[in-house]
Design a protein around this nucleic acid. Sequence first.
DNA 1: CTTCTTACA
DNA 2: TGTAAGAA
Length: 149
Amino acid sequence: MVNNLSDLVNLTNLRFKIGELSKMAGVSTRQLRYWEQKKFISANEREADQDARVFSFRMYIKVLLIKHYLDEGYKLAAANEKSKDVIEDELWLHRFFEDSFKGIELIDGKRAVNLGFFDQENRQTLYGFNEGGKISYAVKPLPEKEEEQ
DNA sequence: CTTCTTACA
DNA sequence: TGTAAGAA
């Protein structure tokens, strides 16, 4: 259970050895090694001990995706391409939100989500806020900069 | 017990 | 891909 930020941070740093990953994803260790050989997945590092492969959480996701498409009937190579498409799209979505979300501000005592510039020309910013359970939008001019020019 | 590589079915 | 073998 994730209760605080440090837990979330640790989540992103989770590392799995091949046996764990195999059980988690329902894929044989033989498959994982083969997929790695095919460059479909990659061990992020090798544990000093027995030169054991160490996989990241991202790789776990990748394996799940390939497994998913494999179960759907795709051949391994095709399943890999499919998973790449999904990840690519997911990255785009992530970048989109990261670029769009400018934080939350308090406006007139209400929390407003800063959605970035609405009108670059007139220096207006778009906000989204709660209006009786519905999403309402409003624009607000950017504060004048005193030192400008 | 786990992982690794190599080799064979 | 599964499984076996020998090593670490």
